[in-house]
């Protein structure tokens, strides 16, 4: 089960992920990411993300590359130790923008979009 809440917090679009991202629910995430990444700066709140498999990592990877290419920015934050360890296992934490919390995430976007 995955619930995605979208909140407009100009100039940011914030997605709050609640539940689990696997090969089934990643389709929902993919659609939502396509929508928000076309709208500008994107923050992904992972505080309530309980599980992620490679399908979810792949979606973040794809849109992260798109976002960087088009000048839009994408930052994830609030990852639990368990979720962070999955990013670290494949080494994706080295390539994506990951912040501790929302404030840090906004700062990271502002710095990199200047």
């Amino acid at each position: 089960m995955l619930e995605i809440n979208k909140i407009a917090d100009p100039p940011f679009q914030k997605l709050i992920l609640i539940g689990e991202v696997d090969a089934s629910t990643s389709i929902q995430l993919d659609q939502m990411m396509e929508e928000v990444t076309s709208e500008g700066l994107v923050l992904i709140d992972c505080t309530h993300l309980a599980y992620i498999s490679s399908a979810g990592l792949g979606v973040f990877n794809a849109y992260f590359q798109d976002a960087e290419g088009s000048g839009n920015k994408l930052v994830l934050y609030g990852l639990s130790e368990k979720i962070k360890s999955v990013f670290e296992l494949v080494g994706l934490d080295q390539f994506l923008s990951i912040a501790e919390n929302e404030d840090e995430a906004k700062k990271l976007i502002n710095e990199s979009s200047v």
Partner: peptide, 16 residues
Amino acid sequence: VNEGKKGGLGLILVKK
């Protein structure tokens, strides 16, 4: 990462 791929990470995870 460079190619922005969605697939290919699963079996890397399993092997790790």
